[in-house]
Structures are given as C-alpha cells and as structure tokens.
Computed example of a mutant assay.
Amino acid sequence: MSAILETRGLTKTFGGLTAVDDVSFALQKGELLAMIGPNGAGKSTCFNMLMGQLPPTSGAVYLDGEVITGLGPRQIWRRGVGRTFQITATYASMTVVENVQMALLSHNGEIFRVLPFAHRMHRDRALALLDMVGMAAQADRHCAVLAYGDLKRMELAIALAHDPKLLLMDEPTAGMAPRERLALMELTARIVAEQGVSVLFTEHDMDVVFGHAHRIMVLNRGALIAEGNAAEIRANPLVQDVYLGGGTVFGRAEKTDA
C-alpha cells in the first residue's frame, strides 16, 4: 500500500505553547484512520495544518508524495482533499439538492459564470450523491428544517461532490444521537470500501472509533503516543491512563481543544 497522506515532524507552537509536537504518521489509500485524544490534545490544530488553515511551525505534509506544506485551503482542496467540520455550514435558504449543486458548480469552476441558472445545473449528479448518503428522498426540502443528523449526511454529500481522494472529517458525529453516530460512520466505512476514498477522522465516541476505524492513533499534549488497531489501542496502558480512563491527561482534566 502507498500513503495518500503523510506528515513528517509536524509541529505547531503558539508562543510558549506547543499544540502539536513532532507528529509523523501516514494514511494509506483506502484506509479509515481515527485520530483520538482528550480535549486539548491538538487534534483540531493538526487538522487545520493538514488543510492549510494554519501554517506549521516546522515539519511537512505530503499528499500523494507531493509537498503541500504552505498551500492554502483552496489549493489543497483542488488537489483532491475534502473536509467536514464539527459544526455544519450550509445554505439554509436553499434546498438539500441545491446545496449539493452549488458544491458541484464550485468543483467545475462554474459558480459565477452560470449562477442565474444554478438550479438547473448538475441536478442528476447531485441526486446521485444524495442517494449515496441516504438523502435523496429529502432532496427538495430546505436545509433549515432538517434534523441535525440529516445535515451531517448532506455535508458528506457536499464533500463528496468534489470527488476527493482524501476526506478529513473533524468530529463527524458531534451533536448526533448514538444511533445516528453509528449509522453515519457505517455509511462512511461503506464509501471508503466502495469508492476507495481515504478518510482521517477525529472522534470522541469510542464505540464509533473502535467499531469502524481500520487503525487508530492517539494524541496527548500535542504528541503522538500510540498507534495501532482497536485491540492494540485498548490494551495500551498509556492510552488507558491518558484517555480511556476518564478523559484526563496524566491526572489533569483538559478543558479546551488546541
């Protein structure tokens, strides 16, 4: 297997605080990789560097063997990297299918050229994407009336509209009921298997992580402290002490995510 995403010595400091500390890992093609850790471990900071929202203090990020360190979010997106966020951001005044159509228009560079006719463009492809995530029946509903779990599934369809080779999912099940969480990750795992998309996701729900991730890496105080499959992570004494035993970091509760 070859790595779709790789980091080498990725580090981010804010003044005297080291939020991400010399993190190196590789995500293989077609892999579902979970990044876990207590609040304040540096997961979101790491994600923001991968997607270009934050420049690293040192280290490098590679996509398909090409250095993407220093590129902006749009440049990285154009190279085939999609992202979903902890809090969904959609056009509430538009319908579900129109939101996906807008993503397809952006992917094709047509936003400004055909904006007056946007509602007619790429509707069939948008409906196919919504069908993939189980939202085709709600295609013509306005986003403002959707349940939160449905918004999350629509956000996944929007991310897939770019036909990404890599998908970064930051807390994809945040705010969802337990049954909805498992259903969303089952859907994601199916897309990984069927479409060959590689996924890196952060998550606090251990049922989701252990039930679906091919491999898990654990951050603590910005550093990568463990990596392995579900059984190896469960059995790791340091992980048990730091994370699984109550969400504390060496006995001190963390309150904010770096």
Rank of each mutant, 00 (worst) to 15 (best):
T57I: 01
V133H: 04
K152T: 08
A161Q: 08
L160A: 03
P172N: 03
G65C: 00
T11H: 01
E171L: 03
T173M: 13
P164N: 09
R8Y: 06
H107C: 12
L156A: 07
L130F: 10
A231E: 14
D257Q: 15
E110S: 08
R190N: 10
F210S: 05
L219P: 00
A137N: 12
E66C: 14
L129V: 08
T188R: 09
L127W: 10
A139V: 02
G65I: 06
L104V: 04
T202E: 02
A189K: 15
V249Q: 12
K152V: 11
S106K: 13
V197E: 01
V208M: 05
E98G: 04
C46Y: 07
L200H: 13
G228K: 00
A159P: 03
P172H: 04
A147T: 11
F85R: 06
T18W: 00
F201Q: 07
Q138W: 13
A174T: 08
V239A: 06
A118D: 05
N108E: 10
Q195D: 12
N236P: 07
T13C: 13
H212A: 12
L187Q: 12
A231C: 01
E31P: 04
Q75P: 10
G80Y: 02
A159G: 04
M176A: 05
L151C: 15
M135N: 11
L130G: 07
N99R: 00
Q195H: 14
L129C: 04
Q75W: 04
Y243N: 05
T90L: 15
R78C: 08
L200F: 08
I36N: 00
F250E: 15
L17H: 02
L17T: 06
A60N: 14
V100N: 04
S44T: 12
I76G: 01
L238K: 12
A128F: 08
D163M: 10
A223Q: 09
G175T: 07
A183W: 05
M1Y: 10
L71G: 12
T18P: 00
F210V: 11
G82A: 14
A3T: 07
I158E: 11
V239H: 03
E232I: 07
I233C: 06
P172F: 02
K152F: 07
L151E: 15
L156I: 13
L151F: 06
V100K: 02
T18G: 02
A92N: 15
G134E: 09
V192P: 01
K255N: 11
M206I: 10
S2W: 02
E186V: 05
A161V: 06
S106I: 08
H142C: 14
